[in-house]
Design a protein around this nucleic acid. Structure first.
Lengths: 154, 154
DNA sequence: GTTGAAAAAGATCATCA
DNA sequence: TGATGATCTTTTTCAAC
């Protein structure tokens, strides 16, 4: 998996902005003709740099307007404990992302729900039932100022 | 923009998992034939429920392994102040998402960078130069436990 | 890396149930 | 709203440069 040149970066930027660009259009945008462009895209996919493609959905329009950030601290931080936690998280679709943090709190995750009631249900039926959880601190988002699925590739 | 039936939800789930599914395959998955399926997709796009399509990129593989969460409090919360802040945020590609929060902190945003040095540069050259910012508190992510671009559509 | 052409696959549209 | 079939566009895979 070699380094990316300027053209690869252009491809990545263009496909982050529109994952359905036809190869022809993409080729024009990045200053290449179609076949080498297609080859590069395939290589980026094979290398795992492009992990996939996804439709971007407006959360409010599908009845999921609320994001909640939950900081979670575990009682212990043994390997096994962390793994079990990670596995549970990955099973729950409400948790859209989760990061392992430095500092006083161990995890920060974002949970997407339809309303506060749904969040309480999530807490009671899922999060608080996990053992090893020492504390949970929730912060609620009122609205999105920005959501970019695009990484700032140089 | 009418309500979504079970088939629409299936379409949304399928396209979140693979935004490049051909209409035919998608149609099979959701139990429809190709043309009505294409019609529904088009309607979901027109209604703004599907906002677009994007390539999903592995941040580590493009040299952006660090996520930083920054909590920002503004000095005042006048309309004008908030707007100016929002506009600046949207211009900066390092900020991948930003939420308006309830509670003591006004904004929570995630910044993606290559290393801590790049984050310091971001702070010095951009964030701290915005006026109206009362405080900034940064938390660093060591790794991703989960990242799902897929909303949990029922 | 480029071009061009042919075969295969997919999208679109009018039409009918 | 869903199905079918004709038509048109794109993608892919070659060759050769």
């Amino acid at each position: 998996m070699p380094k990316l040149d300027e053209i690869d970066l252009r491809i990545l930027r263009a496909l982050q902005a529109d994952g359905r660009l036809a190869i022809q259009e993409l080729a024009e945008k990045v200053g290449l003709s179609a076949s080498p462009c297609a080859r590069r895209v395939r290589n980026l996919e094979k290398a795992g740099i492009i992990k996939g493609y996804a439709a971007v959905i407006d959360p409010s329009k599908v009845g999921l307007p609320i994001s909640v950030f939950a900081s979670i601290k575990l009682e212990r931080q043994r390997e096994e404990e962390l793994d079990r936690f990670a596995q549970a998280i990955r099973r729950w679709p409400e948790v859209v992302d989760c990061f392992l943090m430095t500092g006083q709190r161990d995890y920060l995750m974002r949970i997407v729900v339809s309303d506060l009631e749904a969040y309480e249900r999530f807490l009671k039926e899922k999060l608080t039932r996990l053992d090893g959880v020492a504390s949970i601190e929730s912060s609620f988002a009122l609205g999105e100022v920005k959501r970019s699925h695009a990484l700032p590739v140089k």
